[in-house]
Amino acid sequence: MASTRQNNKFVNAIETKMDMSFKAIVSMLRDQFKGSPNRQPAQAIPYKKLALPARPQAEGVQVTWFGHSAFLLEIEGKRLLFDPMFADSPSPVALFGGKRYSGGLPLKAEDFPAVDAVIQSHDHYDHLHEGTIRKLKDKVGRFIVPLGVGKRLRKWGVNPAKISEHDWGDELQLAGLMLACMPARHFSGRGLLDRNSTLWCSWVIAGKSNRVFYSGDSGYGPHFKEIGTKYGPFDLTLMECGQYDERWSAIHMMPEETVKAHTDVRGKLLIPVHWGAFTLAYHDWTDPVERAVKAAHAQGVEVATPQIGETVTVGSAHYPTAAWWRG
């Protein structure tokens, strides 16, 4: 399925609206200023330092979460970095999103060894960060992005020859891996005048023996089942879970929908992402993982809850499941 445009703007495959009624806006203003002691941790949350060898293992899949939606995927000897937003704040205006919960990162951008590819899901500030890209750009073999996002990277000094832009349904080869740019239900833009001028997407990553799916930011929709039918089953899914609200559930899944989307794509192991780093919604900061784990257990879905910086090896006899956020 290729993306479509209306009035030179990308649009979702199905109708997707946020509740922007007067009543909804008033309720959001009320929630913003009401405050809650549980919207962020009382103290910095723990994270594990990460030391990477020059090259990853030649076989298998390992994934390391950096908080929010940034993660490192090492698959069959290739090192892929997804949505590497390593800034202290997810917004150009620090009032929105505040500071990173962990206060630090498992590995700084400038300390990364060579990376085969940086892969982006869309261009929002909490997923695409200029400073991070500038520090990584000379270590990265390719930048693989949805349509229109390449202009951001070129502006920040990335060699245009390294950048490839993709539409929904595109398949591409990366040194023995097949990547597919697939739909998501979201939006894009970094300012008041560029909304939906670039595309948003999810990603399929398929090797000889392993398959991984990353949802990107997305509301729940029929695209998950379509992706599962075409490309599943997946050994691992990294599914958006967090920064949700009933008023904008069309563009961010509720945690129970996170689990449903995982089953739709025919996933085996689920790792919830898009939580654990910043406050971008009104729910308690631990609600996303608590609700997702509860729903996963109810449906017999295997779920891993690694700490930030903790590497998960797919196919292990045991996965990290400790409720570390309660500590």
Rank of each mutant, 00 (worst) to 15 (best):
I205D: 01
F143G: 02
A250E: 10
S89C: 08
R79I: 10
V118W: 01
T132L: 04
E76F: 06
P53G: 05
S3K: 03
M85F: 11
F213C: 06
A206I: 00
S202G: 15
A51R: 00
R211F: 08
L147A: 12
L153W: 05
V301D: 08
E226C: 00
G97Y: 00
T64P: 09
V273P: 01
D217T: 08
K137S: 12
K49P: 11
G77P: 01
H129V: 13
V314N: 11
G189F: 06
A298F: 03
D170R: 02
Y125C: 13
R154T: 11
F278G: 13
T64L: 08
K151W: 09
F10A: 04
K225Q: 14
L199F: 08
G67C: 03
P53S: 06
S91L: 00
L174A: 03
I119D: 04
V118R: 02
I144Y: 12
L136H: 12
H127E: 06
T237D: 08
P288N: 04
S197N: 12
K155R: 15
W156K: 00
T132C: 04
T16E: 12
A24H: 13
R30S: 14
F66M: 02
M1G: 12
V301W: 09
W324E: 04
S164R: 13
M20R: 03
A51L: 05
V61H: 12
A323I: 05
G176R: 09
W325R: 07
A322K: 12
W325G: 07
P255Y: 02
G35A: 11
K48Q: 15
L179N: 10
S21F: 04
L128R: 02
M1H: 11
W275H: 13
M28P: 06
K260A: 15
A54M: 01
D31N: 12
G221R: 10
A109Q: 01
S69G: 04
E290G: 08
D167N: 14
T313S: 14
Q57R: 15
